[in-house]
């Protein structure tokens, strides 16, 4: 439990801010796509080296970056839009990953890789997660200003000759890197959840970047904590438990948040009080 908690907190701190940028850049689905795109790399590493965490992490990273790079290349040199090429490529990636695992491993292996189990985290995985988390926060701090401008006014960034392309590439790399860290705790299918759901919920509470980032991290950490307690108390899988708690946060925000929620839109403060 203690290890699982440390792992979840580490991942929350770096994933949630990335998620906020993904959502603001209208790239929410990219997180989900990346979570799937890493599968063939994880599977290949599993076949070659067994359940070796470093090998599977590196394999996942390589596969995710390959899909991102290919999607970029395809959309640049053909008429296909980037989201469409991402969709095609990640479906191919998932199919080949599942096929590889089912040919070489057992159903239990497949389940472990797809759904993960935070209770199986050991010190080795935790240190990988800590490194990825620290690296992500440092890189985000460095590219923060450019990333913000690239997200909301890319034309301005071009006129001042800011390096939007490099920052975009760094950002995608960080996203894949965090997906790799997440799937240890939550499995491939759920790892996008910790990144995106807190980020989406935080949209309903603030219109300022810094507080949005802080809130997303807070929601991710507390959701992980509550989700793990739930998983341990009733012997449930940790990934779905965490995501469902976060889903509860999302639902509450959607209904009662300050900005753009059901309450704010359809039950505003009365203009004439009394």
């Amino acid at each position: 439990m203690k290890r699982a908690l440390i792992g979840a907190i580490l991942v929350s701190c770096s994933s949630a801010p990335l998620g906020v940028f993904l959502v603001l850049r209208r790239m929410s689905l990219l997180g989900d796509i990346m979570a799937h795109a890493i599968l063939p790399g994880v599977a290949a590493a599993f076949i070659l080296f067994g359940m070796s965490i470093p090998a599977m992490s590196i394999g996942g990273l390589a596969a995710g970056l390959t899909v991102a790079l290919l999607a970029g290349v395809v959309s640049r040199f053909t008429a296909l839009r980037e989201d469409a090429s991402f969709a095609a490529l990640y479906l191919i990636a998932v199919a080949s990953g599942v096929l590889m695992i089912s040919l070489h491993g057992t159903a239990q292996d497949l389940e472990d890789i797809l759904f993960g189990d935070a209770r199986l985290l050991d010190e080795q995985i935790l240190s990988v997660m800590a490194v990825i988390s620290a690296l992500t926060l440092l890189a985000l701090l460095l590219i923060y200003r450019t990333l913000v401008v690239e997200s909301f006014d890319p034309v301005f960034l071009r006129t001042v000759r800011g390096n939007g392309g490099v920052v975009h590439a760094v950002f995608i790399t960080l996203t894949v890197l965090n997906m790799v860290a997440n799937y240890q705790a939550m499995g491939t299918l759920m790892s996008a959840g910790l990144m995106l759901v807190p980020a989406i919920a935080s949209q309903f509470w603030t219109q300022h970047m810094r507080s949005m980032l802080a809130l997303a991290v807070a929601l991710a950490v507390s959701g992980s904590l509550l989700g793990l307690i739930m998983a341990f108390s009733w012997n449930l899988p940790s990934g779905p438990s965490i995501i469902l708690i976060l889903g509860g946060f999302y639902l509450f925000s959607l209904l009662f948040g300050r900005f753009g929620s059901v309450r704010a839109r359809y039950f505003p403060f009365r203009h004439f009080s009394r």
Partner: peptide, 16 residues
């Protein structure tokens, strides 16, 4: 061409 829903303050835009 600019995303005016982005969570950034007026001062931060001008500082750019």
């Amino acid at each position: 061409e600019i995303d005016r829903t982005f969570p950034i303050s007026v001062l931060d835009v001008v500082l750019l």
